[in-house]
Design a protein around this nucleic acid. Structure first.
Length: 268
DNA sequence: ATGACCTGGCGTCCAGGA
């Protein structure tokens, strides 16, 4: 089973590029981020006519996540638990029903910029960086529950986290950025250290592997990228992993998103 | 050498992104 994550930066703007990629890559399951659409406006037909079941968790203008699956989806849940007042659409999960069940969670982790810190170095409450770190605390809680179930499960999406210096072409440029600051990376490691496998780094070592290139300043042409889209696998899912990769060439196609798809192949 | 983008929205500029 091939499962992909893809931050599409607006479903309307990707109404051609996304189906084209689906037709060439043939993923069984796709976790989408930044659909930037309400549920009613999501063009389900584009995907249903290709044999996908569609589940969305949309929001007007910003954010928004969705799941496409050629296999049936059950027990769909929308919104990251832990804060009833959080109205941002950044989390959706469902069980993919095949020979063996697979729980998939799609996430769009807050960017966190601008970083606002108090004099003691703590994030200013109510600020965007504070929201990011608090969201990651809630993510850790949900992650621990997934591990406790001891079943094949994964959390994939746009984490807005550059895990290590080798995951950026110019790490020094990101030193003070919410994507690379020590608190952000530590929060990511705390989740990993619960017992997840970061799929890409289990397969590929070394620098030069990115999943995002800014539209500005010719970042793509200079390969000035960062790796911020990740797959975290429970041990039961990691044991099933056959391969993992990044569809880099998608960034060079017509009217691309600024992110490219990342995928895993599971023996399930 | 320098500068440089894209998306959605009660829109023709703004907010948000990374």
């Amino acid at each position: 089973m091939k499962i992909a994550t893809f931050n599409i930066n607006g479903i309307k703007a990707r109404a051609e590029a996304l189906p084209n990629w689906l037709d060439s890559a043939q993923p069984d399951v796709v976790l989408l981020q930044e659909i930037k659409s309400v549920d009613e406006a999501f063009p389900r037909d584009l995907f249903e006519e290709r044999g996908y079941n569609v589940e969305t968790h949309g929001q007007k203008g910003f954010n928004g996540v969705a799941i496409l699956s050629k296999l049936p989806l059950e027990d769909v849940s929308r919104g990251l638990p832990g804060d009833e007042s959080d109205e941002q659409a950044r989390w959706i999960e469902a069980t993919v029903v095949g020979k063996q069940a697979l729980r998939v969670c799609g996430l769009y982790l807050p960017n966190g910029n601008p970083v606002e810190l108090a004099e003691d170095g703590s994030p200013v409450p109510g600020g965007k960086y504070d929201y990011k770190l608090r969201w990651m605390e809630r993510l850790r809680t949900r992650a621990a529950e997934l591990l406790a179930a001891e079943e094949p499960a994964l959390m994939a999406g746009d984490y807005n986290i550059i895990p290590q210096a080798e995951d950026a072409k110019r790490p020094e440029a990101w030193r003070e950025d919410a994507l690379f600051r020590p608190e952000s990376r530590a929060a990511f490691r705390r989740i990993l250290n619960l017992g997840f496998t970061e799929a890409f780094r289990a397969r590929v070592q070394g620098p030069g592997h990115y999943s995002f290139w800014d539209y500005q300043a010719g970042a793509w042409n200079r390969n000035d990228g960062i790796r911020i889209d990740h797959f975290l696998l429970t041990p039961q899912a990691a044991d099933l992993m056959r391969d993992c990769g990044i569809d880099k060439e998608v960034r060079g196609r017509h009217k691309p998103s600024d992110h490219v798809p990342v995928w895993v192949e599971l023996d399930i």
